[in-house]
Structure formats: C-alpha cells, structure tokens
Design a protein around this nucleic acid. Structure first.
Lengths: 343, 343
DNA sequence: CTGAAAGCGCTAACAG
DNA sequence: CTGTTAGCGCTTTCAG
C-alpha cells in the first residue's frame, strides 16, 4: 500500500447534511427528512427530486442526530461473557438474524465472566440509549441490576432460567441439564462418578451456569446414593486442551472412576482425546458426558453423549422479544438428551 | 415470571439528564460535563459534590447527545461475512479486547457473503458515525467502496492481502495459503489431487477468499505438471457435515485420488470423519489438507495437516490501527504450515 | 402536501 | 476554576 496517510483525524470528518440536501433540492429540511424516513405524505415528484439529490450528494443520514431528536435508536446491546466459547457466538448469531430483519444493529460487550466488568459495560451500552438489551445470565451486581431496571427499555436475560429476572428470560435450566446427565449415567449403571470443570482462567469471575449444572448433577447423584467421587477444576477458560488436562489430572488421582461429567462439550472432547491417546476404552472402561451438543462432538464416528442446548433459538427469541412488546415472561426452551456413544 | 408488562414502549423512556444533575448539584451543566469526562480543571470538592449527585440520581450520560455535540463517537463498526464459521467470531474476539481497552464498542453487521447486503449494512453502520470501521475482504460493491472512501474515518479491510485496499489492510495472502498447501502435498509425493469446497448455501454471494486459496492451489499444481483431477463444491455454508458429504461425493466420482484439499478445517474434518467411517487409511490411502488450524483439528490424536491463520491477531491489529493514527498500510501477518498427520 | 419554530442532551469556544 | 452562549443534525409539533 502506498496511499498517503488518510487525513481523517480522531473525529468524524464533515459530511453532507440534511440541510444541504434540502437546499440543493429546493425544499425544506423536514421534507427531506420525511422522504428519507418514508413518513408522512409526499408528492411523488418531490420525493423523486429529493432522492435524486440524496444520491447525487452521497448523503448518508446521521442517526446520531436522528436518535437524539426522536429518542428512538436502532441499536440493541448484547452482553456476552466470552467469545472464546463457541456457544456465545452462536447466541449472537441467533440474535443477529432477527435484529437485522427488524433493522437493528447489535452492539456487543464481552465481560470475560467478570461481574464488575459487566456492570461497567452495561452502563456504557446504556449510554447509547439502545432500543433493548440482551444480557447473559440472571446474576448481576446490584448496581448493574438497578441500571437495567431503570433503563426504561426491554431487557432480556439469556441462557438460564434458574432464578428470577428483570423483564424477559430466555433459556433453559442448567440445574436440570445437570440432573439429566446424572440420571442418564445412573440409568446406564455407572456408579463411580467424576467431574471435570473449567475456571475462567482469571482469579475473578466464574461460569455460574456451569456451576448450576454441576449442582444439579451432584445433587442427583447424592440423592441416588452414589455421591460424586472426585472432581477437577482446571484453572483456565473452557477448551479442548483444558478438558484433556483436566481428565488426565482427575484419573491420576482417581483411576477407578467409571463415568465423568464435563462442564461442556469442549472439555469432554478433550477428555475423549485423552482416552484415545491412553487407550482407555469408551464407554467400556470410562463413560464421558458433555453439555451443548456442539456439531464437532456429534459428527465423529463415536458421537459424544451430551445434552443439546437451544443456543441459536435463545438468541433468536431473545432478540424478537426485546424488540417486540410482549409482556415480561420467562421462556424455557429446554434441553434434549443426546445419548451418543460415549456413555 | 409474573412481573407486569414493562411500561417501556418503543422509545427510550425519559431519563435523568445532565441538566438535572447540574441543578441538583448547584453548578452549571458544563461543570458536570467536565467532571464526567475528567476534562479540564475542576476543584476537588466540586467534583465530589457532582459525583455524589450523579450517583444519587443514577445518572447515565447520554452518549448520543455527546457524540452529536462533539462528533466523536466510541462506536466501531465491524462487518463480518458470517458468524457460522468460527473464524469470524475469532476475528471479532481479537478486536474486542483492544477495543474495550481503548473504550470503544463494536457494532456488528453480518453480510452472509452477500455484497448487496454488505453495501446496505455499511451504509447503516456509517449512519452512526462510528470512529472506525473494520470490514472483511477487499471486494465491495462500487457504492460500498465509495462510501468507505468518503466516510472520513479509518477503514480496515481484514483477512486478505491479495489486492489493493482503501486505507488499512490486515491479513494474509489466501492465494499463498493455497500454494503452501499444494507445495506440501507435492513434496510429500501425492499426485492425484481433489478439492472439496463450500458454497454459501445461497444462490448469491460466495466466499471469495476460499476461491483465492483454491486458485493458488490449482495454479501451483498445474505449474508442477500435476493438475487438479476433480473437485466438488457443496452448495452449503462451510461445516463439518458439508465436508463429509463433499468428500463422499468426490470419492464416488473419483475413487483414485490420493490427496484432497479442503476449503477449510471444518470441511476437512468432515472428510476425515468420512474416511474413518469408511475405513479409508489416512494418510496412507488418502491425504487430507485443511486451512486455519482450528483447535479441534489439532488436538485429536491424528492432527489435521493444515495452515495456521492468525485470526485473533488480525482482529487485534485491525482494531488497534483503526483506532490509532498510523499511516495507511498493508499488514501481512502470514500463515504457518502445520504438517499434522493427515498428509 | 409542505414549512417554521423549537428543541433532543450534550460539548466547544470563549469569557470571566 | 467556573459559567455563558451557540450550536451538533435531525425530528417533533403545529400551522398553513
């Protein structure tokens, strides 16, 4: 590239305004405004003339000014804990479709599972006066929750139905997902259970929903009289590699486990690869169970036993409800047991 | 949930303004403004008093008004072709870090590989007068390109260095990536080559970068005197499943191939699973080669032969350059051959 | 069908 | 260190 440095400084350069279009077209500003927004009655030829000059001048309306004047933005905030876990890009993808269709733009913020960061990011997003906000989970700092309640816009809390919310809740019960996993393993006759989970990789913040799954799993086992035998929490974000290390560490301590539940499919896949490499028969010697039913775990010759979560749907429904005027509600999209071949 | 329907209508509800904070604190608006933005000299006690009332009133500054008044927004537009291909969430993740650090928010738009949609989305993003814009690829409609050139903000085009750009380019040569793959396979002694690629799944729009890789691959083979023998383009977005079907179809037609290049790792993984299921020895009977070096392909016992692309880095560098004031430039981050075990 | 006046909530540019 | 005066570019009344 040998373009000269672009002149553009920190600030947006001067661009043609509605006023100039109006002058050029020989009409008043409001007329141009009406033409652009297709609002109110406009004579066909006036419209044509205006459109013409709009095109000629390469006019791009300024939504910042428009929003300030009309207090109606087309931005929708989306707060996600992470982009490293493919689940959240999928939620985002689910939301992006309906949002675009309805003319909204997602503005995203990533908390890295840190509640304080979430609070700051929510405030920062709210400053843009979005039309609505999608956040992940039901747990927020008190101030964050207060801001959400007072924002005067629709709020959707996604991915978790285990608790109360602010306005709209769309997700599934993570606790139940853990129970489903436990019941499946118990029904299959497994008795010596282990768990491999992930931390956030930072000292602060945790994956609360994984915790709820663990809790459901552990509770079910205990009630069945076969309490969890051992668990290993890898201090890293969830990943295939973390799952591999986690299972290795767990088995080093407790070699006689016959079934291991993982915090999610990525982790479980890592465990699976560990077993392949070590020649541990699956599910003969050891059963593995994940969470999410990611494509990668399902297309292998030996598909992972797991629970399918409606991630795309959650984004989709969340987006639609936030942009609509349905009453406040909790939408539980449920999970499906995928028997697979590893348990 | 049994909250009553939230009153919030379509428009943002009335929220406390800077004016009210000023009145409450007994200072002028500009003083409050200065305190909030930490700009200019403010007496310690004045600051304290203002902060106090800000907190008491739960005041959240209105950035829409702020941006209009100062023409300096903290939004950065990001235009991606897809969220279904994990590569783009990774680019986004790469960008999200630096952006947050620098106080910017990513506003995202997904084109689904449709140039017309890209044009519309770029216009829509530009309407928000973002501080900068990250787009994917170097090819745009003429009007889209004109808008980008006239936007008066920094523009970064990501993921591809094979061509000229508008301002900043950050990526790698897809053509070269194809050449690298071909040279590796040739060096290994393979001679009967096939290719499995993906379409977009829609009639309109294509993955131009995959096309450039194919082109590099094909050219290298031809020049070496071992032209591509057969190819199969699955009419679906890239996925593991599409790769599986693609290879099945290709081998049904051309059973004697000894090496297959895939449009990316997802596709290659599908091919790999097909071979596992069919008992086709890899790389003995058939060599497989992908693109991207996704984690999932690398941690398996038989890691995929592929090329590593610096996706995170691309997002990161793109974001930093767009928000800085470096000269226009092309940054080629290159790719690395990963020998793997499938070729 | 079109226009004039009055802001939306904030900040730049000067004054004091 | 603090305040006053003008807008930013658009849309909302309310009149014609």
């Amino acid at each position: 590239m040998d373009h000269p440095t672009r002149p553009a400084g920190r600030k947006t350069a001067r661009r043609t305004t509605l006023t100039e279009v109006a002058r050029q077209a020989g009409v008043s500003e409001i007329t141009v405004s009406r033409v652009i927004r297709n609002s109110g009655p406009i004579a066909a030829d006036t419209r044509a003339r205006v459109m013409e000059t709009v095109r000629a001048l390469g006019y791009v309306p300024n939504r910042v000014a428009g929003t300030l004047a009309s207090s109606g933005s087309n931005l929708v905030g989306i707060v996600l804990p992470s982009l490293a876990n493919i689940v959240f890009p999928e939620v985002l993808r689910g939301a992006a479709g309906p949002l675009e269709t309805m003319g909204y733009h997602p503005v995203i913020a990533v908390t890295e599972y840190d509640p304080a960061r979430e609070e700051a990011l929510i405030e920062s997003l709210l400053a843009w006066r979005p039309a609505g906000l999608l956040v992940t989970g039901l747990e927020h700092t008190p101030r964050a929750e207060a801001m959400l309640r007072n924002a005067g816009i629709r709020i959707a809390e996604l991915m978790d139905t285990d608790g109360d919310g602010i306005d709209i809740i769309v997700g599934f019960s993570n606790f139940d997902a853990g129970c489903v996993a436990a019941r499946h393993l118990l029904a299959r006759g497994y008795r010596r259970f282990g768990y491999v989970g992930h931390g956030s990789g930072m000292t602060i913040g945790t994956d609360l929903r994984a915790g709820k799954r663990w809790s459901g799993f552990e509770t079910t086992l205990r009630e069945a009289g076969h309490p969890l035998h051992d668990k290993e929490i890898v201090d890293a974000p969830s990943s295939i590699e973390a799952g591999r290390c986690g299972l290795a560490a767990l088995l080093a301590r407790s070699p006689k486990l016959d079934a291991v539940y993982f915090s999610n499919d990525d982790m479980a896949l890592g465990g699976y690869f560990h077993c392949l490499a070590r020649g541990i028969a699956i599910p003969g010697t050891l059963a593995l169970f994940g969470h999410n039913a990611l494509e990668v775990g399902q297309v292998a010759p030996q598909p992972l036993s797991t629970v399918r979560t409606p991630r795309l749907k959650i984004g989709e429904v969340g987006a639609m409800l936030v942009c609509g005027d349905a009453p406040s509600q909790k939408v539980d999209l449920g999970v499906d047991l995928i028997e697979g071949a590893t348990a």
